[in-house]
Amino acid sequence: MPSIEQTFTLQVPSSTVNLAMIREFVARVGGMAGFGENDVAKLELAVDEACANVIEHAYDSDTTKQVSVRATFDDEQIQIEIIDRGRGFDPSSIPQQDLDQLIAQRRSGGLGLRLIRTIMDDVQYQIVPGEKNELRMVKKIRKP
């Protein structure tokens, strides 16, 4: 049977209070896509991290701005895009440091990106300065 692609979109004001709603949205769509409980939890975390970055860094917690989460899945995989119009930066330009180095420097930056890269199978950024930033993440659905 051919795989039917389905897309769901959530748009919320840029505030960390909305991270809970974003996680619920991802959990619902992840469950529909066929992910098990552990993978749904990981998806929630990856999207939470990406959206928290947008809210706090791209938008400096300006609640008049909007964060969009678009999830598309078929039988094989789920693709989640996080779209914002804030100050874009290329997270891949940030060097990955060891945890003990971060602790020694009393820094916790970069942990979210490390989680995203660990959880998702593919992570790509598309930055059009002053227009649109798009983080595209893919996770394959593991068949039981």
Partner: peptide
């Protein structure tokens, strides 16, 4: 999430 993990990290040392 990492924001919570970061609190543990920032105080440990």
């Amino acid at each position: 999430s990492s924001a919570g993990l970061g609190v543990f990290m920032s105080f440990l040392e």
